[in-house]
Design a protein around this nucleic acid. Sequence first.
DNA 1: TAAACGGTGCCCTTCTCGTG
DNA 2: CACGAGAAGGGCACCGTTTA
Length: 228
Amino acid sequence: MKVKSEAAGIKEQLLNIYSLLFLKYGDQHWWPADTQFEVIVGAVLTQFISWKNVVKAIDNIKEKDLLDIHKLYECDIELLKELIKPAGFFNRKAVILKAVLVFIMENYNGDLDKMFQTSLEVLREKLLNVKGIGPETADSILLYAGSKRIFVVDAYTVRIFTRLGFLTGTENYHQVQKFFMENLPEEVDLYNQYHALIVKLGSECCSGKKPKCLECVLKDLCQFATFS
DNA sequence: TAAACGGTGCCCTTCTCGTG
DNA sequence: CACGAGAAGGGCACCGTTTA
């Protein structure tokens, strides 16, 4: 892991970045969902695609009055595929969603409160054992549905903090997560907001191909910034 | 020789970019 | 302007290679 040697420590720098992002983008109110269950469904559906399309898929489920663990658990998988079509990869996601529902029903009798009473470490391990649930999806569910203290890493996080010089871009998920969790205050709300702001910056400004460095609030801190 | 590991392609839709 | 090609996005399965 590359370490910056400037006077300000990494912890101060991370908080400084957070402040700049918050000043620019404000409270992100994440996760955009009404219930814990909606967060879980959204976390699965948002894999590989933009949130916009997930909204359509969830609206479809809501329209049929199926946004409920028991109802969705009983729901025919072909119907489920139809409903979540806008979210892309629907064949696979329907299967993943079903697997999650089976997991919650069989382990916790469909009771999310009960599920989130489980310790972070144990529940994370269990979620990762559900086919189709990787670290990012599991952590999203833990943080945003369960208010567990875990930092969510995604492609934006890696891209932005590599460009800023904190990462080399070759670290694995766990290493990146550890970096943030060791250098940020241990606050669920901060983890929540920080990740949301990273996504905001990543999608609006720090894109993969043509980042808009000129309008980036972090441009003065960034080694990557180009202004051509 | 078997297990562990690393790399690659696939899944599907939407959006962006480039070309005619 | 309209169209088509290509990329993005997370995880899994399968392949070939390395290691014990």
